[in-house]
């Protein structure tokens, strides 16, 4: 419906296809679903690191975040910002994307939705990427291969 083929959500006990579950820590035993470890702490090892202020932690990212890690920015944060805040956010995204490209990390733009009403459709994500001078086709291609590679490394039954 929203032109999105795969979504990431917190694990609620039910297993659905085309969903990659976002966990805070690795499950203790083998599981039947695809998952990624998500953290907002730069010092913790994770598959995806969610950041809120790129400018503030740029140097830390260079030093502490492993290559291949996904660095996630959420739209939910930008919703609350005024126009100048959004303009700065666009600029941060542009810079973060270039940083990820040059340092072999994966840039992730996510809705940060906590309910269905906050979800963002594929064309809207593309529009934001274009506004940040990022080619959406290239981004989704890279994102897809990163996701497949990352998820396939997880052992699942």
């Amino acid at each position: 419906m929203l032109s999105i083929s795969k979504v990431g959500t917190p694990f609620n006990g039910k297993i659905h296809e085309c969903v990659v579950y976002r966990l805070k820590k690795a499950p203790p035993s083998l599981v039947k679903y695809q998952y990624l470890i998500v953290s907002d702490n730069v010092d913790e090892p994770a598959d995806i690191l969610t950041i809120s202020d790129f400018r503030r932690i740029k140097e830390k990212l260079k030093m502490k975040v492993k290559k291949g890690t996904g660095i996630e920015v959420t739209i939910a944060l930008a919703r609350k910002m005024d126009a100048s805040g959004v303009a700065r956010w666009f600029d941060d995204i542009r810079e973060l994307y270039l940083f990820c490209q040059s340092s072999r990390r994966q840039f992730i733009l996510s809705s940060g939705a906590t309910s269905m009403h906050e979800m963002v459709s594929g064309p809207c994500l593309d529009a934001i990427l274009k506004n940040c001078d990022i080619d959406p086709h290239r981004h989704w291609r890279e994102m897809n291969s990163w996701l497949e590679g990352r998820v396939s490394r997880k052992v699942s039954v």
Binding site: M81, E118, M119, V120, C124, A127, I128
Partner: peptide
């Protein structure tokens, strides 16, 4: 102007969800 409109919709608070176009 579609890209600007879609970006504005995505950055709206309270949220509005684009379904189709």
């Amino acid at each position: 102007q579609l890209d600007n409109v879609l970006a504005a919709i995505a950055l709206l608070d309270p949220p509005v969800v684009t379904r189709d176009m």
